[in-house]
């Protein structure tokens, strides 16, 4: 990690050092705390009773501890499981395919003997300068390719990105040419050179780019909102989005009197706490996986910016 090495050498301990220490610990501690607090509040809300929340509002600690909200989330566990399965399949499939395409492309663009590489590089970079915008893309997916309500409409839009390509390319450029030349003298074709020589050397880049792609799939709700109409096909984030907004819609109905509040209280459906519990169920895996993947992201940001 970037801040591993202490940078300051030996400095005299004067009043200024103490003052700076107070500022540094205070400020960083405060920012870190502010980053954590919303997570804690959602967690606390999810373990509170609905009644306590409607009376007092959300707080930092669970009020009137209850798991009612989680029971409601898993009332029909298949719904949650299905959304999870969709997202996991998309993430694994998309990451694998995306990595394959990106690695092949980056490898070719990094080979100096390929005289057309600048032309092809420009072909890719230009798409970051100008885009057709939302409407033509929307028509392309929905009508031209006819992918409305298909999983492909979730898979394809995130498959390839020029930024990931740049990270990968700058990594491959770091491999000594002699290694690749040696492989060719030994009679390796380009594909074998790529798979047997280059890929083992760029494992960190594969991890970094792979995680960037995976995160994009995991957190995607936008493509689902635009292209997916069947509830059973919703990926996790859009499932959460829909649930949260359905609860809002339900509340509006109550306010308008279309559903009598007696009906609502009789089924006693948790709404506010349910939102929080759903959010925890959706966020959980990311937070748990986070400590293990953080360093790859740090790497990726640093490489990406040097040659971005």
């Amino acid at each position: 990690m970037a801040a591993e090495r202490s940078h300051l050498g030996k400095v005299r301990k004067g009043g200024d050092v103490i003052a700076l220490n107070i500022i540094a610990y205070g400020f960083c501690g405060l920012v870190a705390l502010l980053c954590l607090v919303p997570f804690l509040m959602v967690l606390a809300g999810s373990f509170s009773s609905e009644q306590a929340i409607t009376q007092n509002g959300f707080s930092l600690l669970p009020q009137d501890f209850s798991v009612e909200a989680y029971k409601t989330v898993f009332r029909d566990p298949m719904v949650v499981v299905r959304a999870y399965a969709t997202t996991i399949c998309l993430t694994i499939g998309g990451t694998f395919l995306g990595l394959c395409i990106q690695t092949m492309t980056a490898y070719v663009l990094a080979r100096k003997e390929f005289e057309w590489r600048n032309a092809f590089s420009f072909f890719f970079y230009f798409t970051t300068l100008f885009s057709g915008g939302l409407v033509p893309y929307y028509i392309l997916i929905n009508q031209t390719l006819n992918l409305r309500d298909s999983y492909l409409a979730l898979l394809l839009p995130l498959l390839f990105s020029v930024y990931n390509l740049l990270i990968m390319k700058s990594y491959i450029l770091g491999i000594p040419d002699s290694l690749i030349d040696a492989a060719k003298i030994d009679g390796c074709g380009e594909f074998r050179t790529l798979v047997q020589v280059v890929v083992p050397l760029i494992k960190p880049a594969l991890a970094t780019v792979g995680l960037f792609i995976a995160l994009a799939y995991w957190n995607d709700w936008y493509n689902a909102m635009l292209y997916i109409k069947t509830e059973e096909k919703y990926p996790l984030q859009y499932f959460l989005y829909q649930q949260v907004n359905n609860i809002e819609g339900y509340k509006k109905l109550i306010a308008n009197g279309s559903v009598s509040s007696a009906v609502v209280s009789s089924v006693n459906l948790p709404t506010q706490t349910l939102k929080m519990a759903l959010t925890i169920v959706v966020t959980g895996p990311i937070v748990l996986a986070y400590p293990f993947v953080q360093k790859y992201f740090v790497q990726g940001i640093t490489i990406g910016a040097v040659k971005g």
Partner: peptide
Amino acid sequence: FRKVSQSLMFLPYFISWVIVGVMAFNI
């Protein structure tokens, strides 16, 4: 202290804006 606070600051980057929307509502 440095490692933990840096990790905590990086955490929000990993969650979707849908979740941030819920957090905003919470606050």
